[in-house]
Design a protein around this nucleic acid. Structure first.
Length: 870
RNA sequence: GGGGGCAUAGCUCAGUUGGUUUAGAGCAUCUGCCUUACAAGCAGAGGGUCCGCGGUUCGAACCCGUGUGCCCCCA
């Protein structure tokens, strides 16, 4: 079979993915092997594959494939998240295109459209993961709104409510006026905004025309003021505390109070308190039992309670009220002022603090064991630096607002009667059963849904029906899972909460290791986002470079624990690496056809084989260690170097027969064996090409995908040293050739002056081939008219058909000499220091003494060479 | 405002309990080669005040303090 000039990934990838799935390699069922379980961080059902997914899922696939080849029973569970806000937004947009408004539909009608959308467009991302080669168990695809899953979410709500860990409370929440929904703090994006600060004077309830001036960035909220607050130590206002003032325009009488929350230096030092429309003012209001006047409707327009501007949007009102205040003589001045304003992550509307009845989870009770699990390293974070962040957050944890004013999601299982009583239960029948007084009464279920994270925190066990079918064989086998791979930005949204849910419902932590990936940024270091348009088209890249190259490119640029600066050039590097592998295959296929079975294996080939065997084993052990500690990028770099440099550039060249000469069968077979071992090592990172070449090399009895790693043998370090010496000599002599402008085609004669010929004799055939030497001889004295090179204690004389540039030779030797002498001085300083000799460990002392001896020997060699040059 | 992190070659990063030859790799750069696997390649080279300052130590890229500059999270 003729192999193509370059590697062509397209068909190969399709072919093998299909084969792997059809062979059932990715499907797992409990057996007597040890489980290695990974649950995918479920992408939004609306999602399309982006660079973040690519990184995240490549890492998971590497871990899972490696586990498979190590003899574990790996189970990687795919699935999607119903993503209530994002999906509802998509469905609303789809309906708008069809000329339907959400408000014209009943809840059931809307959900009908939503499911229709989900079935049609949802989960595209799962198809895309296949293109990347992800070895997911597709027979286990889960969705956070599957029937069983849905029931479990409800079960958890009811259970936590019964345990007193869920409560209903009027609290300040972030309100998205456009989506008319509550947002969690994490869904609010704070941005610096250039605004104005308004100084307004309030008439005091005292005889005469006296005023107090406050500063505010939100003049439209004065209609909801219930107090003015000053600092108790502020001399300007001390006499006013306990007195009253009138809110401008509406003349409501409000008290002047004192609290050290107020900053004396800020603004005028007097703060208007509007408990219904500011988080901090709300706290003050609670403390001083102030009236709460909610002046805003859920769409951001002013309410009846405002008294003025009813029905107009708060942003418009700001302009109008400013004019009216000015006309009324209450506006003192306006200054420019830059401050932080919260925007909705989803709709970009300015978020309004608003009082609302919401459902909350009391987090303090859940957080304690989850904090302990990470602090005690029962769960290990990689990199460990995230432990600090986690601790800080968990120690200051706030209650979790879990209700969302949406229809797509898990509906809150609470029912209200007409008197305003409410009952939490799994369903209405249960309410009637538990509360006989409700029978016959009209009950209405809470209209709101639960926060999406309230379902995803059950993911690691509910994908195995750990809650809907407790103690089933699967959850007992697969849970706790092994490793969670996720982005650091959802450490609180998701990771922390999964730990809590795991402890609460399974009585066990949900995973042993958490690997936090970096954030994918563009070349300029900007986070990739839709709005910036700096996100490349991943499927296009896969088409262009192949999935293996994309996986390579993204992994080689992903230092453990750091962000990844995505640059397409690493994909090119990946493609080139594919091609390198392909060409090595072509070389081996050529040798396969030219085998010679006669005679013994040549001595130099035997040396090369022994050396590579040792090198391979050493590297396999290194890679093993790196993967154990999640240094994936480093592991890939190591494998890349082993294949490109050690195998292709050194080993294959060392065993390469002369022009059109045969290759000894023993050497050929060993080399195929080596190559296969390399492919196996690389397979988790680049699954497609490795599988393809594995089968191209020879007829195989099993696929690489499921081929078990064999334990490594002991390393012969002596042969490793001999190989390193050979490489060093070759490089040094090639450098000398280059510097003296000896053309690659021109053969040289080499004379070696050494006190010990033996190490050179074993490698001399390889050496001759590698530096294009016609002859290699040993000498005990200097060779005239030659290029002299000093290496360690030995000297090399190159005789070439070429004029010798003594000046540049001398220059090189002098440079080397200066370096060695400088080194000698630094070593000498240490050894001459009595305190060093007294305090240093004996082995350190020995090393320093050896350094000194080596430096002296090298200096002598160089000086002798210089002397010979005259 | 509170908290966390980072700073080593042009770029991206290694550098494990302080001593492993006056710091390593990949990419990029430069020089020479179209050498029968590979120019998507081969061979070789150059390139660093380990952010500044101070301290601990016989010895600091590494430990401590401080300054500067970047990044992230929360308010």
């Amino acid at each position: 079979m003729e192999l193509s000039k370059n590697y062509l990934p397209g068909e190969v990838e399709l072919k093998w993915y299909k084969h792997w799935v059809n062979s059932g390699y990715f499907h797992s069922t409990p057996n007597d092997k040890k489980a290695y379980t990974v649950v995918i961080p479920p992408p939004n059902v609306t999602g399309v594959l982006h660079m973040g997914h690519c990184l995240n899922n490549t890492i998971q696939d590497i871990l899972v494939r490696r586990a498979r080849m190590q003899g574990f029973n790996p189970c990687w569970v795919p699935g999607t998240d119903h993503a209530s806000i994002a999906t509802e937004a998509k469905v609303v947009a789809m309906l708008r295109e069809r000329g339907i408004t959400k408000s014209s539909l009943t809840r059931d009608e809307f959900l009908g459209y939503a499911w229709e959308w989900k079935e049609k467009y949802g989960g595209i991302i799962l198809q895309q993961l296949r293109k990347m080669g992800c070895s997911l168990d597709w027979e286990r695809t889960s969705f956070t709104m599957d029937a069983d899953y849905y029931e479990s979410v409800i079960k958890v709500f009811v259970d936590l409510y019964k345990k007193g860990k869920i409560y209903r409370g009027k609290r300040m929440i972030n309100w998205d006026v456009r989506a008319k929904t509550a947002l969690s703090d994490e869904e609010v994006i704070h941005k610096e905004v250039a605004g104005k600060i308004y100084h307004l004077r309030y008439k005091l309830d005292l005889p005469g025309e006296e005023y107090i001036t406050i500063a505010t960035v939100r003049p439209e909220t004065i209609l909801g003021d219930s107090a003015i607050c000053v600092h108790p130590k502020d001399d300007r206002y001390k006499k006013l505390v306990g007195k009253f003032a009138f809110v401008p325009l509406i003349n409501r009488r409000i008290p002047i109070i004192a609290d050290d929350y107020v900053e004396i230096e800020f603004g005028t030092g007097a703060l208007k308190v509007t408990p219904a429309h500011d988080m901090n003012d709300f706290v003050l209001g609670q403390k001083y039992n102030l009236e709460i006047i909610d002046t805003m409707n859920d769409d951001g327009t002013l309410s009846e309670a405002a008294g003025l501007y009813i029905g107009q949007d708060r942003i418009e009102v700001r302009k109008i009220i400013t004019k009216d205040l000015e006309a009324a003589g209450n506006l003192v001045k306006i200054e420019d002022y830059t401050h932080q304003v919260g925007f909705s992550e989803r709709t970009d509307a300015i978020v309004e603090p608003r009082l609302s009845l919401q459902w909350w989870v009391d987090m303090k009770k859940l957080a304690a064991p989850a904090l302990e699990a990470v602090m005690s390293d029962e769960i290990s974070f990689h990199p460990a630096k995230f432990k600090n962040l986690y601790r800080h957050w968990m120690e200051g944890i706030k209650d979790w607002c879990i209700s969302r004013q949406l229809w797509w999601g898990h509906r809150i299982p609470a029912w209200y009667d007409e008197e305003g009583n409410f009952y939490v239960a799994h369903n209405e029948a249960e309410v009637n059963a538990n509360h006989p007084e409700t029978k016959g009464k009209k009950l209405i279920q809470d209209a709101d849904c639960l926060d999406t994270w309230f379902s995803s925190w059950l993911w690691p066990f509910e994908v195995f029906k750990g809650l809907s079918n407790p103690n089933n064989a699967e959850v007992n086998y697969y849970y706790p899972t092994s490793t969670l791979v996720t982005a650091p930005e959802i450490i609180f949204f998701w990771v922390a909460r999964m730990i809590m849910a795991g402890e609460e419902y399974m009585g066990k932590i949900p995973f042993k290791d958490v690997y936090f990936t970096g954030i994918v940024r563009d070349k300029q270091g900007r986070k990739m986002s839709k709005s910036l348009g700096n996100s490349p088209d991943l499927l296009g890249l896969i088409d262009q470079y192949g999935a293996d190259a994309v996986r390579f490119g993204i992994m080689i640029a992903s230092p453990a624990g750091n962000d990844l600066l995505f640059d397409e050039s690493t994909l090119e590097q990946g493609r080139n690496f594919n091609n390198k592998l392909w060409n090595a295959t072509k070389l081996l296929k050529m040798w396969e056809a030219r085998q010679n079975k006669e005679g013994a294996i040549p001595e130099d080939a035997q040396f090369a084989m022994d050396w590579f065997e040792a090198k391979l084993t050493t590297t396999q052990n290194e890679v093993d260690e790196m993967l154990k500690t999640f240094r994936l990028s480093e592991a890939l770099k190591t494998i890349y170097g082993l294949i490109w440099d050690d195998f292709c550039s050194w080993y294959l060249e060392w065993i390469k027969p002369g022009f059109e000469q045969p290759m000894h069968q023993g050497v050929y077979e060993k080399t195929v064996e080596f190559y296969d071992a390399l492919l196996q090592l690389l397979h988790p990172f680049m699954p497609f090409i490795t599988e393809e070449i594995h089968h191209t090399l020879k007829t195989q009895t099993e696929d690489l995908c499921v081929k078990l790693y064999t334990p490594t043998s002991k390393v012969n370090s002596e042969v490793l040293n001999a190989g390193a010496l050979l490489q060093n000599v070759i490089s040094t002599l090639r450098d000398a050739r280059n510097k003296n402008q000896i053309k690659p085609k021109d053969a040289i004669e080499l004379h070696i002056q050494t006190s010990n010929n033996a190490p050179y004799q074993t490698i001399q055939n390889i050496l001759a081939k590698q530096i294009n030497a016609a002859t290699i001889q040993y000498t005990s004295s200097a060779i005239g008219a030659s290029i002299v090179v000093a290496l360690e204690k030995d000297k090399f004389y190159i005789v070439a058909n070429q004029a010798i540039d003594t000046a540049s030779l001398k220059e090189n030797l002098l440079k080397d000499l200066a370096h060695q002498q400088g080194f000698l001085i630094s070593v000498g300083k240490k050894l001459d220091n009595e305190k060093f000799v007294q305090n240093a460990k004996p082995e350190v002392l020995a090393i320093e003494q050896k350094k000194k001896a080596d430096a002296l020997a090298r200096i002598q060699t160089i000086e002798e060479s210089l002397a010979q040059l005259g």
